[in-house]
Structure formats: structure tokens, C-alpha cells
Amino acid sequence: MAIREVLGIYRDLDSAVAAADALREAGFERAEFEVLSNAPYPEGTFGEESGIHRLFVFPLIGAACGFAAGLLITGGTQLANPLVTGGKPLLSIPPMIIIMYEGTMLGALIFTVLGVLFESRLPWIGKALYDTRITAGYIGILVRTAPERESLAISALRKANPEDVLTEGGSVGGTASAAQ
């Protein structure tokens, strides 16, 4: 199904929150729009619920894989080539711990990087409306919806006094230009 994007640009927090409220009143689900800003707002500022994320899983899986690799390299090597030295135990635990720890940390690190890339959708391979004014302190409300609801999104965004409203075709103007 084709998805259209509409981006409302707001000068202040109150207008942006009003836009989010207007979208909800117009029947848009919270999953249909997202807030873009140059600094983090506290969770729930725009009425969003605390979503489920799986970030913690990535380092855990990585650590488990790294530990297993470390154990395989150290313990596996010694068991595959059993050379008893001076009557000492076959498995030399202290150096095994160091190498298994290294493997655990390396695995956790690599999987954390992958988790960040996956969970934050970086690199973003799809198209997404964006405006550089967002990093200048403006707040963006990005709506992703069906083509037939695009005009509904535009009118909802305009209710909250936007600086500008952008569609994939370009700017359709904020409140002031819409009134003209």
C-alpha cells in the first residue's frame, strides 16, 4: 500500500503538542506520526506511550555468542589436543577466563552496534520527509498515512499554527499562507 508523508514544522513546543492532539482528534493513530526534534523531550510529552524495544537483547546475545566462542577456542583447543603437563589439570582456567571475557565483551560490543543500527533504523533506506529547520530548534510532526488521508493530515497539522507544512510534492504552506 502506498504511503504518503506530510511534515508539519512548528516553532515551539506548545504548537507541536497541539498538532499531535489535533492529529489524534482527526482519527490518526499514534503509530501514524512521529515527532522530530533536535533534543530529547521527556517520554510522554506528546502523549506517546512507552514503546517496546529490544535493545537489551542485542548485547545479551552478543555476549553469549562471544562467551561461547571464547570457551570453544580455549576449552575446545585443550580438549581436542589433550596434553597433560606436569600432572596439572587439562583445562588451564585463569587464562581461559581472560580470553572468554574478551570474547564476551567483543561480542556484546559488536551486537550493541548492530542493535543501535537496527533499532534506530540507521542507515535509513526508505524515503522520509525532513527539513533542516528541525536541527535549528523547530519541532517536526511527520505523518505517514494513506494517500486518501493526506489532506486530512494537512488540515489537522494546520490547526496548530505551523511554521510550514511539507508534502512529498513540496511546501503547501503554514497557517498564514493557507489563509491567503
Binding site: E34, L36, Y41, H53, A108, S120, P123, W124
Partner: peptide, 24 residues
């Protein structure tokens, strides 16, 4: 910077992972 846009999802990710990365 990549395609960082400052979405809610990205902020949540950075705020959580930056601590984890430091601990790591």
C-alpha cells in the same frame, strides 16, 4: 551523522544505548 532525523524512536535509542555503550 548519517540520516539522523531526531525521531522519537532515535532519541529513545540514543538515551538508552549511550549509557550501555559507556558501561561497556
Amino acid at each position: 551523522a548519517g540520516p539522523w532525523r531526531g525521531s522519537h524512536r532515535q532519541w529513545r535509542m540514543v538515551e538508552k544505548v549511550v549509557n550501555n555503550a559507556g558501561v561497556l
